[in-house]
Design a binder for these strands. Structure first.
Lengths: 163, 163
DNA sequence: AATAATAGTTCTACTTTTGTAACCAATTAG
DNA sequence: CTAATTGGTTACAAAAGTAGAACTATTATT
């Protein structure tokens, strides 16, 4: 709790608040124009690429969306055969969602599609800045993931508390 | 070199796609619960803190929202006395929007509010990771701003250049 | 001067997301 | 064994964002 820490925290928050609209601008629009999925479904697909299976509650917790919304998004993904429902034999209330092979390959090509414009712009960066950006985004992602999604509140054993 | 660039670009895109939902989760919800502004209005306020004045078109371009939406968001901000309309004497069609003193101070306290939970979590990071995160977010922000908001497509005269 | 183009507003229709509440089935606790 | 809790679905209302046409006023083009 030193002076220096507070300055760092403030600058982190300041920076993240600036970055957020930039990312929205970059991705959301091309998601709508270039895919037949809505952004929410794509976020669900995204977390499923990073976790083999997740329950409905866990998905909602990680993406901060109401369970009812998760249901409708997963329904859409199932209609596209991108994910599947797996019923947990140990607790038959739980629905585990798993991405399919088709879902994985589709997600890859969708990523290509929606990042096409960004890719063109990144290509114009000099090698040094590009490498800086590569390292920096990796660090932000890694640290933010441990900070934002704290394991204790989202996992199946001690599950996400809904208020 | 080309090889290496493509790897970097892919990892940047991969990372940004992971970061985006994390930021949404972090900010959007508390914006709704802790302020009487909608997220869009807050984004408008945000860009106005970084640019003394912007025209309606420039705001829409920077945030990738239709001009009609910008109109309604600015209307809300004016009702809260956080911004003001300034008519350009040189071209009376243009409406320049400027953040007020109240807007600036309000935005600061809103930032405090909506980042409170994140702040608590950041405080638990050790000094090294916090400083890493501080530097990395700054780099991401700076480079992304030059990449995402390309000057030529946003300006009316020459006013869209980001530094 | 006539016409085209631009900046912004208003209007309407639509999609997406959020927030509840009611409900069922399965599990856990007393 | 009841009673309470949990995970998930369904249904509905409301907020927020998206998209585009029609319109006014102003400026630019010719």
């Amino acid at each position: 709790m030193i002076e220096n820490d507070n300055v760092s925290i403030d600058s982190v928050i300041e920076n993240l608040i600036s970055i957020h609209p930039l990312l929205s601008k970059t991705f959301t629009k091309s998601i709508r124009s270039k895919t037949n999925l809505n952004p929410g479904s794509l976020y669900v697909l995204g977390v499923l690429t990073r976790h083999d299976t997740l329950s409905m509650t866990e998905i909602g917790c990680r993406l901060s969306m109401p369970k009812s919304h998760v249901t409708s998004l997963v329904d859409k993904l199932i209609a596209e055969e991108m994910v599947e429902r797996l019923f947990d034999p140990k607790d038959r209330r739980i629905v585990n969602v798993k991405i399919t092979e088709k879902g994985l390959t589709d997600f890859c090509s969708i990523k290509q599609e929606i990042s096409q414009e960004l890719r063109l712009k990144l290509e114009k960066l000099d090698a040094e800045r590009l490498s800086t950006l590569s390292v920096a985004t990796q660090q932000v992602k890694d640290i933010l993931m441990t900070v934002v999604v704290e394991p204790s509140s989202c996992n199946s054993t001690d599950s996400c508390k809904e208020k």
